[in-house]
């Protein structure tokens, strides 16, 4: 048994930390691509697409004239007006952690609290490429350490389940968004990726999902667009793949149902969502259209999140 508010704070703590890490990856990729000669990176605005991948266009356009390096870094890393910026995510996560201190371990609290204290030392005006890289490394490191401590120190009670539900709902959403931003460069045929430009676009997607070396290990093949899509959506081996996230979401919901002795709408919607992914194939995705497929994934994943909130967190 857990207070609903405490369960909600744990769930959102995990979501916000996961979001901070994903945003850090997107910025990392944008920074890497923007440093390439245009013959390799193309003329697309990498900063803009990083911002688009977070779903922040509307908010961004209200506050900035141009999607240039400084503005996007400010918006995605530091702006407190953007609730999904790294700074906002870490501050919200710390606030959640602080109000549920009793439900997390001391180690988890210290990672979050340290990250929040460290955050104050950084600002957009001091961000040379090197400092940006260091800042992003710090963010990713803090998020990984939190994950590690959650894995190693939390009791396997319902609190742990809600924490993990937050992680996997957010992670599934992020992977779908990262892929969706680039769907226009994904060619439907099984072609090898041609030319420098495409190659770097592709690797940027894999990097954003922390899956570049994983691709080589899973396929032992040159980069092919449909395989990148397959890896990020349907391959269970990849920890950030959409199907892996849906499987874990279902697993933790089943554990809750088992502990509490009661199934509910959250379990049903997670089961249907996971089944649709587990029974899908990359061919089916292309028939449906990758963009359409990803939009559906984002919608259904959100619906599972809503069902979790309705069933447990209010």
């Amino acid at each position: 048994m857990l207070l609903s508010r405490v369960a909600a704070d744990l769930y959102w703590l995990a979501r916000y930390v996961e979001r901070a890490e994903n945003t850090a990856r997107l910025l990392d990729v944008a920074s890497r691509l923007s440093s390439l000669p245009t013959t390799y990176a193309g003329s697309t605005n990498e900063w803009e697409s990083a911002m688009t991948a977070t779903g922040g266009n509307f908010l961004f356009d209200q506050r900035y004239d141009e999607a240039n390096r400084r503005n996007v870094i400010d918006f995605l890393a530091f702006s407190r007006e953007n609730p999904s910026s790294i700074a906002s995510c870490l501050a919200t996560a710390r606030h959640s952690a602080r109000s549920v201190r009793t439900a997390i371990t001391r180690e988890m609290w210290e990672v979050i609290n340290d990250a929040w204290l460290e955050l104050k030392r950084h600002s957009v005006d001091a961000m040379t490429p090197r400092q940006l890289a260091e800042f992003l490394a710090f963010v990713k490191d803090a998020c990984l350490r939190l994950d590690g401590f959650a894995y190693r120190t939390m009791l396997r009670t319902d609190a742990h389940a809600f924490y993990n539900l937050g992680t996997f709902i957010e992670r599934g959403d992020a992977t779908a968004r990262i892929l969706d931003v680039k769907y226009h460069v994904l060619l439907p045929e099984g072609d090898t990726v041609g030319g420098g430009l495409d190659y770097f676009q592709w690797t940027s997607i894999l990097r954003a999902a922390s899956a570049l070396t994983a691709y080589q290990w899973v396929f032992r093949d040159a980069l092919r667009s449909w395989r990148v899509a397959e890896l990020l959506t349907l391959r269970k081996e990849l920890p950030r793949s959409i199907v892996n996230c849906s499987e874990n979401t279902l697993w933790f919901l089943d554990k809750l149902a088992n502990d509490y002795g009661r199934q509910g709408p959250a379990q049903r919607s997670a089961r249907a969502y996971h089944a649709s992914l587990a029974n899908s194939s990359v061919e089916a995705i292309y028939r449906e259209g990758l963009h359409e497929f990803l939009q559906r994934v984002i919608r259904e994943n959100n619906a599972v999140g809503d069902a979790i909130e309705a069933q447990y967190l209010r």
Partner: peptide
Amino acid sequence: LVEGRDLFVLDDKVYMRTT
């Protein structure tokens, strides 16, 4: 550790909202 919004009163009994 509860806040006011975690508790409610029904039939003169106090309950907390849990999962």
